[in-house]
Design a protein around this nucleic acid. Structure first.
Lengths: 233, 233
DNA sequence: AGCGAAAATAAGTTTAGACATAGAGATGAA
DNA sequence: TTCATCTCTATGTCTAAACTTATTTTCGCT
């Protein structure tokens, strides 16, 4: 069953990828230039350009003006990770979603979070601690700081009723975000909220988002033990 | 200091992004169609198309034929993760890279890895265990299975001399890869190889790559405790 | 040989115009 | 009403041609 190429550009991407995978074009080789390929495939140069740019973004090709297009020697591969909305993630797994706000109050910003958000230590931010459940089993604990300067109106929201992430994402699109994955041993609070043992290895996602007014929010998401985050192929 | 837009399409992407972030165009709103924007910005429609496609890939816009372009309501945001070559990562941090192959032999494939690689349990694959060091401190332990069917020649390589990942990446470009992040408590072997305590939380990256001959390799990379994987902004 | 200026080249971008196609909305039959 | 069909529109894609720009190569001068 051969899948039909969605477009000429797609077909060319596939064919070029095939030539690389089948080692007709080896790592480091210079491949024919756009004009030649356009003739070979019987399309306009712009179409070849689009196809090759795709592969360059993927990291399979290196392109430089005048120097031509080369097959990347040491492809440091890129993958796109989709950070799903918790609710959609839980419901997508066929479970019923619910969440519980453990704490919501104005608190002075601790130094480490302040650094991440590029704000001054001790500033008054909204501090939220939430547990997200799938079928009443803890799925994720969320520890979030919200900057009311960049997200006006946040003081007035009852996040027990509206999921903080969804409210923010709907009302304050961001320009830039920092993100880091790490593994942490569950501390006493994590363990209690996730109903697991202290010391269990947790996948932790730390994320800070910014708009033109500065940092909007910084959040630490700790997933239940055994959770796997899959990269979209 | 205003940064100059690299191209007209870039400039349009920025401007549209600004309008979304500044909430001139709200979540769910339908934005003017390509033809109108082309007139507004004084460019060809193809240029607007390119700009909006970029934002659609980013997840900020939803585009449908006939229905027009809408600002995404619940943007499930995407980030690109660059999986670096260990050596480059270590050297990029200003440390000296070295690696040690702890074991290299043909072994029968265990069931869990067989499932990941879509191969039959018990098949004879090359099994490698390697520790990667930065300035002689353990950086990462690698547990790898290589399929000689998809990567012919692998049986003959001495991976003490050549880093397995680099050899594979240079010689067997892949078509598809599965990738998953998780957190695991260090087992006895992890602890010994990483020179840490048993039970320490480790960030684990599990990756399997395929070419047209099937699975090339499946690898479990366990990073030293405290390691953070950053998403490129 | 060494160096700097000039020429050449391959990719990058844009344009106007054309046709394709998904899919929302209108229309009409049952 | 409900369902199937038609129509129309906004996006998707492609083309040929032109111009731009980074970089390499060449060439001429010292």
């Amino acid at each position: 069953m051969i899948e039909k190429p969605a477009s000429k550009a797609q077909a060319i991407t596939s064919e070029v990828r095939r030539r690389i995978v089948d080692r007709e074009w080896r790592q480091g080789d210079r491949i024919p230039d756009e004009a030649e390929l356009a003739v070979e495939f019987g399309v306009a140069r712009a179409t070849v350009n689009k196809a090759l740019q795709l592969l360059a973004e993927e990291g399979l090709l290196d392109r430089k003006r005048r120097a031509g297009t080369h097959v990347t020697v040491n492809p440091a591969r890129k993958t796109t990770l989709t950070i799903p909305i918790v609710r959609e993630q839980v419901e997508g797994a066929g479970m019923e979603y619910s969440h519980r706000v453990v704490a919501q109050k104005l608190s002075p910003l601790p130094a480490d979070i302040a650094a991440r958000m590029a704000l001054t230590e001790g500033a008054a931010l909204i501090h939220l601690r939430t547990v997200h459940y799938g079928d009443s089993r803890p799925f994720q604990v969320e520890d979030r700081w919200i900057n009311p300067e960049a997200a006006p109106g946040a003081e007035l929201i009852d996040f027990q009723r509206i999921n903080a992430n969804e409210w923010l994402v709907r009302n304050f699109p961001w320009l830039r975000n920092d993100m880091a994955f790490s593994a942490e041993n569950a501390n006493a609070r994590d363990a209690r909220l996730l109903e697991t043992r202290q010391g269990a290895a947790l996948l932790v996602l730390q994320r800070t988002t910014f708009n033109d007014l500065g940092a909007i929010t910084s959040v630490r998401l700790a997933f239940h033990p055994g959770y796997q985050m899959l990269a979209t192929p």
